[in-house]
Design a protein around this nucleic acid. Sequence first.
DNA 1: GAGTATAGGGGTCCAGATCT
DNA 2: AGATCTGGACCCCTATACTC
Length: 282
Amino acid sequence: MSDKQDPIKQSGYIIEYVKRETALNMPSNHYHSYYEIYYQLSGERYYFIKDRSYYLKKGDIALINSYELHKTLQAGGNTHERILIYFDPSYLKAFKEAVDDFDLFQCFEKTTPVFNLGPKEQLFIEKLLYCMLEEDTKRSEGYTSCIKVYLLELLIFLGRFSPEIKNSYLEFPSSLHKKISEITSYINIHYKEDLSLDKVANLFYMNSYYLSRTFNEVTGFHFTQYVNTVRIRASEELLQKTNLSILEIAIAVGYSNSTHFGRVFKQLLGVSPLQYRKINKF
DNA sequence: GAGTATAGGGGTCCAGATCT
DNA sequence: AGATCTGGACCCCTATACTC
């Protein structure tokens, strides 16, 4: 997605109310450079984040760090409502420089990215979110500053609140979720090695067909899709921060040749590795 | 929960084109 | 000239429907 087409690059943020499975005006990537705040208003969803899935119900909030792998999945009934905020790390730059006694983004670094808010906190958060939605819809004079102030208040609240997280979210919905989580953790560590479905299935004493199916059910990703996404995310960093050749980077992230690496890269990000490097090199 | 069959897609290799 | 990208061909792996 080019900057001209990317609404977050243009305005610095997106806030949207979503009911059921309406099409989202959001990045299609399963990771992005933006921070994401996901608040569940009603219904239930599974949210796969980094290496495990979380069960979200009313009053739950998920905080997605930049470049964190994530995907929502259906859980139970179809109807659900949520409010989503995406914002670029530079969006609150002026505030971040002015606020010297508090790390505004600390809520994205907690042990668990999901936690439940009590009734009092839910009221507070929902009021803030609806104010932001209203400002974004009406777009009266000064609305951008207003939204920034609301977001600032939200981040400080979440930063203060998160240390009191209950560990109920560290429990797995089922033993299968636990096993798939172990497998995704393994992939996150060993993505540089040769990773086939069979090899991983054998390693975790599972039938490969069964793993293929359950992996998709739990994570929302197909096995190879997940491995490729982890690898391409790693390659982005190498393209930005090193002078390694495309072939060296392909090998470094687990591909045996640059042809296949280039294809997967373009499939996921829309540009070739070299073009990406030109645009994003630090 | 687990196994089987199979169509389709992914991965690999190579050659030629294009870019730097 | 070397690095990178693209396209084609082929083989095998993966996803999935079906079944027990």
